[in-house]
Amino acid sequence: MSASDEVKAGDVPAAEAAGGAGGGSVDEATGVRAADVEVEASRVVRIVAAVVLIVLSGTFLVGVFDIRSPKGFDPAGPRFFPLLVTSAWLLLSIGYLVEGLRSPRAGSNADRSWFEPVSVSALLVLYALLVVPLGYMIATALLFFAAARVLGSRQLVRDIVVAVVLAVVVYVAFTQFLDISLPEGVLGL
């Protein structure tokens, strides 16, 4: 066994003090572990995302009742499947919120990162405003690209390619296979 493989008795407490038993480095100025900050940010993001999902699913569920159909909620009618999907979406969103609320909290000194959830929420609102005038293809590609950048991607070419490919694949799936028309916008597709 070489000298570098040996663990000295005095090194173990120093390593634990630097990283803590749970891992993550400790900021010497604040005394907050990086792992605590990540846990708290992750918890806040989950709660915000769950609330957004609950609001959206609730809105769509109300919209299901605006669908006019002589068949009511008959499985062959146009209201049944949207009711089933939005109800399941609402229940899963509530479960996600409960899971986020029950997740462990970090110390009270933890720095909270609000940039990503607030930015993605703002992008979704902007997308809702631009999807009709710009059209589905342009608005969706811009949304995917901007969301990738907000979430930390720095691969410009890859982000553009993935955004365009995803927008085209979803567009084709909806228009060709599901026969759902999407906003044409300036491209006229």
Rank of each mutant, 00 (worst) to 15 (best):
L91K: 01
R43T: 07
V52H: 08
R43D: 08
G95S: 10
R112E: 04
I54N: 03
R68F: 01
P70G: 11
V52L: 15
P117A: 12
V51C: 03
L91I: 14
W114A: 05
I94Q: 03
S69Q: 06
E99N: 11
S108M: 06
G107Q: 05
F73T: 01
S93G: 14
R79T: 06
L84A: 12
S93M: 08
V98E: 04
F81G: 02
W114S: 05
S57D: 12
V44T: 13
S103D: 06
F81S: 04
A106D: 07
G95Q: 10
L53S: 14
I54H: 02
D74Q: 01
S103Q: 09
V52S: 13
F80A: 10
S93H: 08
G77H: 01
L91Q: 01
G100I: 09
F80E: 05
I67K: 00
R33P: 00
Y96K: 00
A41P: 00
V62Q: 01
L92V: 13
Y96L: 14
V64R: 09
S108R: 15
L84G: 03
G58S: 13
T86V: 07
L97Y: 06
V98I: 15
G58P: 09
G95E: 09
P82I: 10
R43P: 07
A50M: 12
G63A: 05
V48L: 13
E99V: 09
R68P: 00
A88H: 04
F80V: 02
L92Q: 01
L97N: 05
V98A: 12
G58R: 08
A88T: 13
Y96S: 11
L90E: 03
L53I: 07
G95F: 09
I54S: 02
V98R: 03
I54G: 02
F65C: 00
L97S: 03
S108A: 15
F80Q: 05
S93F: 08
V62C: 02
S103P: 02
V51H: 01
R112H: 11
V37R: 14
